[in-house]
């Protein structure tokens, strides 16, 4: 018995391996490192005690994000004040950026500033779909909105980002992508 690995044990290892991404999602949600860690750990714990609710064949990361989001919603409703005191998001860079070229460092700093300025809902869509690679459907399930809502939030975020980067690069070419089409 001692050498066999329990399947739930293996699942727990997979869950722990996802902790940095769960923390990141929580951090973008609550914007406080301590609170994000607390939320992420609470989510891992909940996932562990309810591991049989995870359906094999579905994305484990998506399930964990959903748990984080649910816990966050519960906390919000338990403490409405929190909503008004949310600090600004800071996507702090680390030395890891040091290896990039000066030019791309500047671009990255600009991208971070632009993302920080995005409305919260657009940023969450950007994180789940562009960064985490979830489908629109999966992101909509986590955020508890329709696919249409996620689609338009993401489009607004990406187009705003594109326009600002375009401005920055002084690229005034074309006008082909007029907002809303024609």
């Amino acid at each position: 018995m001692g050498e066999t690995i329990d399947p739930s044990r293996r699942l727990w290892d997979q869950i722990v391996a996802l902790r940095p991404r769960v923390y990141r999602f929580a951090y973008v949600l609550v914007r406080s490192p301590d609170e994000a860690d607390d939320l992420a750990q609470a989510a891992l714990e909940r996932a562990m005690t309810r591991h049989e609710q995870w359906q094999e064949g579905t994305r484990l990361d998506s399930w964990l994000f959903k748990i984080v989001h649910n816990l966050w919603l519960n906390r919000l409703s338990a403490d409405n004040v929190r909503r008004q005191h949310r600090p600004a998001l800071s996507l702090v860079a680390t030395e890891e950026d040091g290896v990039r070229t000066a030019e791309s460092r500047i671009t990255l700093a600009l991208v971070r500033r632009l993302i920080e300025k995005l409305p919260h809902d657009q940023r969450m869509a950007l994180l789940l779909i562009v960064v985490e690679g979830l489908s629109y459907r999966e992101a909509a399930d986590i955020l508890e909105v329709s696919v249409g809502t996620v689609t338009s939030r993401l489009a607004r975020a990406r187009i705003a980002l594109r326009a600002a980067l375009d401005d920055d690069a002084h690229q005034t070419t074309g006008g082909m992508i007029a907002a809303g089409g024609c």
């Binding site: 940095p20 890891e96 991208v111 994180l127 562009v130 980067l165």
Partner: peptide, 9 residues
């Protein structure tokens, strides 16, 4: 770019 921006976290 967006992935790189979120990467340090």
């Amino acid at each position: 770019l967006v992935r790189a921006a979120f990467e340090p976290m």
